[in-house]
């Protein structure tokens, strides 16, 4: 038994290595990974500036000598905003928030999406059609605008509520894919075998179906990270972000609302570039993973 699991493990490991080499061969995937590393480094570095001097704190640190937005200088490498806060430390903190929002919202939405997709696909019939209709309905809802409406009804949203709301509106795409996979898995003999052997439905779903749909769920998670970051940034840009944190969307809102967009390109450009590039990084990784997971997309290994 233990031998079997070990050989299975080494097999999994081998498949992982194979997938990794395919992934790494892919230019798009490589660019994505490098970009992501840069942002990861930024997020880690975001803890440093406030330690050097409290005036570098992204929210509360104000340079006492600065009274208006200033261009990059030795003290402020990217310049300051209109009340003298350091833009670089805001930008670094923004990376941390983007990771936090993106990954946690994406994780939650794949948990919802995978669960609902597996249940719909496995249960079939009425449960399936009800759940999928529900998914269709959520899919036609403009999520950004819904979250806006909710925030106006329920008051100021903190970052975790925003994450939850994004996740709640972003599962249907995943659940459709997972459902389709579950449907085809259900027809495979090993599911029948498990059922005949007396496994409960729950056990079949979690022991036999889940491991098989997991790669696809992870793939979709990278795409969801992208959309979560964009929704959060858009919310912050419109002034509905969490007022206790700095995010890139919020930086853009400040430059826009304080009327500095024509005077301070050093303030306008970095946050926008960061949002665009971090979403690009996740998207590129997702596409490269897709090519690894979906053999049809691979460069033709032609049949003879």
């Amino acid at each position: 038994m233990s031998k079997e699991t070990r050989s299975q493990k080494s097999y999994t490991w081998q498949r992982f290595l194979e997938g990794w080499s395919l992934f790494y061969e892919n230019l798009v995937g490589r660019i994505g990974l490098i970009l992501l590393l840069v942002f990861g480094l930024m997020a880690v570095c975001s803890y440093i500036p406030p330690l050097i001097d409290p005036m570098y704190h992204p929210m509360t640190g104000v340079d006492p000598d600065v009274f208006r937005s200033t261009p990059p200088s030795a003290a402020h490498w990217l310049g300051t905003d209109n009340i003298g806060r350091d833009l670089l430390s805001q930008l670094l903190t923004g990376a941390r928030i983007a990771f936090l929002v993106g990954i946690s919202a994406a994780f939650m939405s794949i948990v919802f999406g995978t669960l609902i997709g597996m249940i719909a696909g496995y249960a079939g019939r009425l449960t399936d059609s009800l759940l999928m209709r529900f998914a269709d309905m959520i899919m036609v809802m403009p999520s950004l605008l819904v979250v806006l409406l909710l925030s106006s009804l329920f008051g100021q949203l903190n970052i975790w509520i925003i994450v939850l709301l994004i996740a709640l509106f972003r599962w249907p795409g995943i659940s459709r894919v997972i459902r389709a996979q579950t449907l085809s898995l259900k027809e495979r003999p090993f599911i029948d075998t498990a059922r005949v052997a007396g496994a409960s439905n729950l056990r079949i779903i979690f022991r036999h179906i889940l491991p098989n749909v997991l790669p696809m769920a992870l793939l979709y998670m990278t795409f969801r990270v992208t959309s979560a970051i964009i929704v959060e940034a858009a919310l912050a840009f419109l002034g509905f972000g969490d007022p206790n944190t700095v995010s890139w969307g919020m930086m853009l809102q400040w430059v826009w609302k304080t009327g500095h967009m024509f005077q301070a390109p050093y303030w306008l450009l970095p946050p926008g570039i960061c949002i665009s590039l971090i979403t690009l990084a996740f998207y590129m990784i997702g596409r490269a993973m897709e090519e690894v997971l979906d053999p049809r997309l691979r460069k033709e290994e032609q049949k003879v």
Binding site: T226, I230, A233, A234, F237, G249, L252, V255, W256, M261, L268, P271, G272, I275, S276, T279, L280, Y283
Partner: peptide, 11 residues
Amino acid sequence: HTLFLPWIALL
């Protein structure tokens, strides 16, 4: 595809 829309609009 991944450009941040409000930013590109401002730009």
